[in-house]
Design a protein around this nucleic acid. Structure first.
Length: 422
RNA sequence: GGAGAGAUGGCUGAGUGGUCUAAGGCACCUGAUUGCUAAUCAGGCGUACGAAAUUUUCGUACCGGGGGUUCAAAUCCCCCUCUCUCCGCCA
């Protein structure tokens, strides 16, 4: 959510920022509601002031044994006015909030202007495609031959878009989770947390999934809960309504969770094999930082995700999402993409974003600054990294002519010393 | 799932309809004082929003959340959430 005050002060700048996302926003209508809202508040406060004073007088009169019938009637009339105004205030607030909650963040000035993912610039590439003197296979072919992915069995119990890892793949997945968490907590300064996978409306609103993206979420109506689409939701909301001391920041948290996504409308897009699933595992990194530090922290965070891939020896590239492609809540996002030689495609495995104070304002996450005043923190998060496509890259980049898979060295301790699959 | 008890500021804890403008204590900040890891004294010490001023002042709201009764609600009533105790069930 954006600050209504900043819109009030500079409506033209806001229009321009939203226009760069391809959005035409009627800022004037929004501000008109804000003006009415403040009028109501002023009027209401005056009435409340009168009622408060008069009620006190009535109390004193009664105590003194005087008659207060007339004053009581007068205050009752004020009470009616107050009720009416409060109703209008609630309506205006609700309308204004809904609009504000539905408007995306402003892209940062350093974000390249563009219309779609075609305009996202590649800012660096690490490693090389592995030289293969044979035709590389897609991971689903490799895995089928090795008997380590069982999609049909998963489909039989849950439908399309679910996976079942068997044997070495399951162990590899578990090893990767441990490897990534260990790396982040021992070398990157994160604290590991285990969090709920089912969360309430407030949590989903805090990080921006609601009210706009309900159709992407699985829900449990009996209990009014939602399945998390990413650990970002419970981890960021750990500090909802919290005021940090300045010394607490930056705070860096990492968590492994499954993620649940309906992927409504994504049918047909790269859905083969492990590329896109309704349920997948992910290690997530979340940071709460002082506003002045947030862009430096975004670079560090992205570096932490890259470190995972570098230690695994995987060829990847980093791109900046342009204004037309950057996510709803984000001010700036780097995507990290792994090369999948069997599909001749780049697969997104990590998305590292600075939300500035957009989530913090929704979730009321603040810190006490040097003057002792509470101000919004900046929140960041990034995948560090997502499992299925990481497995895809390990399989496709590590494949040998005989169909076996070489296990990256750093993972072998997690695999009981195993050097290859197959 | 059943029964009971509770939820008040950063923490602790009083307050059962009317100067509550929420006591007291702890912690913290500022100053004074005392010759020493500190004590004592005085003062300060929440959040949000609005108005005026321009860095201060005034006002309103906030005692788990929501609604109600009343001239007036931390206080009375209803619903919800959470915590604790006991019982049941259970990995």
């Amino acid at each position: 959510m954006l600050d209504i005050k900043s819109l009030r002060e500079n409506p033209e700048a806001a229009k321009t920022k939203w226009a760069s996302r391809g959005l035409d926003v009627d800022v004037e209508a929004l501000l008109a509601k804000d003006v009415r809202r403040r009028e109501i508040i002023t009027e209401l406060e005056q009435l409340q002031h009168t009622r408060k004073a008069s009620s006190k007088e009535i109390g004193m009169k009664k105590k003194a044994g005087e008659d207060a019938t007339e004053a009581m009637a007068a205050v009752r009339a004020i009470g009616d006015q107050i009720s009416a105004l409060e109703k209008e205030k609630a309506e205006v607030n609700e309308a204004l909030d809904l609009e504000l909650l539905s408007l995306p963040n402003f892209p940062h000035d350093s974000v390249p202007v563009g219309h779609s993912e075609a305009d996202n610039p590649v800012i660096r590439t690490w490693g090389q495609p592995v030289e293969m003197d044979f035709e590389p296979k897609a991971h689903w072919e490799l895995a089928e031959a090795l008997g380590i992915f069982e999609f049909e069995r998963a489909a039989a119990i849950s439908g399309a878009g679910f996976s079942c890892l068997t044997g070495a793949a399951a162990r590899l997945s578990r090893g990767l989770i441990s490897f990534m968490l260990d790396l982040h907590i021992t070398e990157h300064g994160y604290t590991e947390v285990q969090v709920p996978l089912l969360v309430n409306d407030d949590a989903m609103t805090g990080t921006g999934q609601l009210p706009k993206f309900a159709e992407e979420l699985y829900r449990v109506p009996e209990d009014n809960l939602w399945l998390i689409p990413t650990a970002e939701v419970p981890v960021t909301n750990l500090y909802r309504d919290h005021i940090f001391d300045a010394d607490d920041l930056p705070m860096s948290l990492t968590a492994h969770t499954p993620c649940f996504r309906r992927e409504a409308g994504a049918a047909g897009k790269m859905t083969r094999g492990m590329n896109r699933l309704h349920q997948f595992d992910k290690v997530e990194m979340v940071k709460f930082v002082k506003p002045a530090d947030s862009y430096a922290e975004l670079e560090k965070l992205t570096g932490h995700a890259e470190a995972v891939l570098q230690k695994l020896g995987l060829h990847y590239r980093v791109i900046t999402l342009c204004t037309g492609d950057v996510g709803f809540s984000s001010a700036k996002t780097y995507d990290i993409e792994l090369w999948a030689p069997g599909q001749q495609a780049w697969l997104e495995v990590s998305s590292c974003s600075n939300f500035e104070d957009f989530q913090a304002r929704r979730a009321k996450i603040r810190y006490r600054n040097e003057q002792g005043k509470p101000v919004m923190v900046h929140t960041l998060n990034g995948s560090g990294v997502a499992l299925p496509r990481l497995l895809v890259a390990i399989l496709e980049q590590g494949q040998q002519a005989d169909g076996s898979i070489v296990i990256p060295e750093v993972l072998r301790p997690y695999m009981g010393g195993m050097e290859k699959i197959g």
